[in-house]
Computed example of a mutant assay.
Amino acid sequence: MKSTSVQTVYAFFIMLHLVSTAGAAEQPYQHADEQIGTVRQVYDGKLYPDIQVNTFRNIDRLFPTRTVARGDSVSAIPVSDQPLQDFSYVVDGQTYDLYDVLAMNRVSGMLIIKDGEILFEKYLLGNDEHTRWMSMSVVKSITATLIGAAIHDGFISDIDDPIVDYLPRFEGTAYDGVTVRNLLQMSSGVDWNETYTDPTSDRRRMLEAQISQQPGAVLDLMASLPRAGEPGTIWNYSTGETQLAGALVQAATGMPVADYLSQKIWAKAGMEADANWWLQSEDGLEVGGSGLSATLRDYARFGLFLLNDGVINGERVLPEGWVEAASTRKVVGGETVPYGYMLWPLHGRSYAAEGIFGQYVFVDPDKDLVVAIWSAQPKPLNRAGLNEYVFLRALSDYFE
């Protein structure tokens, strides 16, 4: 439950940030004047390639946002004196190399970090190291990670607490009886249709509620959903669940989700730039499942944070064992599902945060490897030229 001193601590943190950044020169965003499309066109996959790229690096112009503030210092990532060279892999008798992956998957940025050093960093399609790019569902993993931080801080008592203990507005709805664990695993049992391109789907209904910018509209939609099964018996991927996850973080901590992210991770981990995060309404709740916009190196730093088991400079931010639990497959309704706590387990102990159109933060603890990828694939799903999982597995295997 919320500590009685949280508001005092939060106010002190914000005061320190304001003092430390006072007088700092604010550089204009180099992409700010580019022509962009609409959010409906994004989800419909109806943007021409040039406008799509402009839109993906300017998503803060689609909705109101809240800043995720960086801290006073930047955590440097050294560049290896032995950069990645001559990487290739074979699929069905065909050999592919890094050039193929970048070109065929319309990658707009890729950063590969091995043993804490940059082996490869490449920006394409007009991006550079200062560009901010959309996360899409990569931010689901960040929202879930903040729940872990809130448990470690004591704001959430236990992962098996009913969510209505923190969100009483959902008493009497299909979410009554759903636990924090169910929410993290997307096993609430609440009915949901995730089809991005179907204008009648729940996912598109949620988008329209977001477009309305009416306070509480998204959560009202979630409260209206019917039950498909008992909590913990059905796994169903639902962006809607992440809206409740964000609301849970805000309710438990007593502060905006973006500010909690800044306090617990963004500032402490030495991110080099402020990020921004979509809001469900002006000055309202963050969109828990999409809409974070950040630099490529800062996405990679989030991967390094996970790789280090949620510890920053010796300070534990996440409960011990949280990352392992979050990144391993779960049994739901008697069946093993390829999902953890809003992370996707892959080969070995590796896992990834993933977003449509080809966004990835990949972590392989066995190889001390982190890969951050931006892409601008033409449609929300099923348009990757090369299978990203096969590429990432081949990259892991390359480092024996």
Rank of each mutant, 00 (worst) to 15 (best):
R181H: 15
V190A: 13
G189R: 00
L207H: 10
V257H: 03
L292D: 00
L183G: 12
L221A: 07
I159Y: 12
E208N: 14
S201F: 02
G240S: 09
V164M: 00
A300Y: 01
P231N: 12
V190I: 11
T253I: 02
A258P: 05
D198N: 15
E282M: 10
M206C: 09
T239L: 09
D165A: 12
S238D: 06
L225Y: 10
I211G: 03
L304Q: 13
G254Y: 09
L184A: 14
G254A: 08
M271R: 03
Y299A: 05
I234P: 00
E171G: 14
D158G: 04
D274W: 02
E208L: 08
F302E: 05
Q214K: 14
N276Y: 05
L296G: 00
T179A: 05
W278V: 00
S188I: 01
D176N: 13
S281G: 03
G172C: 06
D160E: 12
L304M: 08
W266S: 11
D198Q: 05
Q280R: 09
Q263Y: 14
S157F: 02
T242R: 00
Y237T: 06
G254S: 03
G172F: 09
E282G: 00
F170I: 01
G216V: 04
L285K: 05
D298K: 09
D220F: 03
T195G: 05
A251T: 04
S188Q: 06
W235M: 01
A252W: 06
G284V: 12
Y237W: 07
T200K: 14
T200N: 14
G254C: 09
I156K: 01
D202C: 05
L225M: 15
A209C: 13
L244W: 11
P215A: 08
R169V: 08
P256F: 01
L292I: 12
D161P: 01
A294P: 10
M222F: 06
D165Q: 14
E286C: 14
I234C: 01
D165M: 01
V180L: 12
Q263S: 10
M255D: 04
S262W: 06
D191N: 08
S212N: 07
F302V: 07
L285V: 10
M271L: 11
L292H: 07
L207C: 09
A223G: 11
L183Q: 00
L285R: 08
L184M: 14
Q210K: 10
R205T: 11
G177P: 07
Y196F: 15
F302G: 07
T239A: 15
L285T: 06
P215V: 08
D202E: 01
L221H: 07
G229D: 15
L221E: 04
G270H: 12
A300N: 04
W266P: 08
D165E: 11
T173L: 04
P256K: 02
E208Q: 05
L225D: 04
G240D: 09
L244G: 13
I265K: 01
G229F: 02
S238C: 14
G240C: 11
K268F: 02
M222I: 08
D274T: 00
V218N: 08
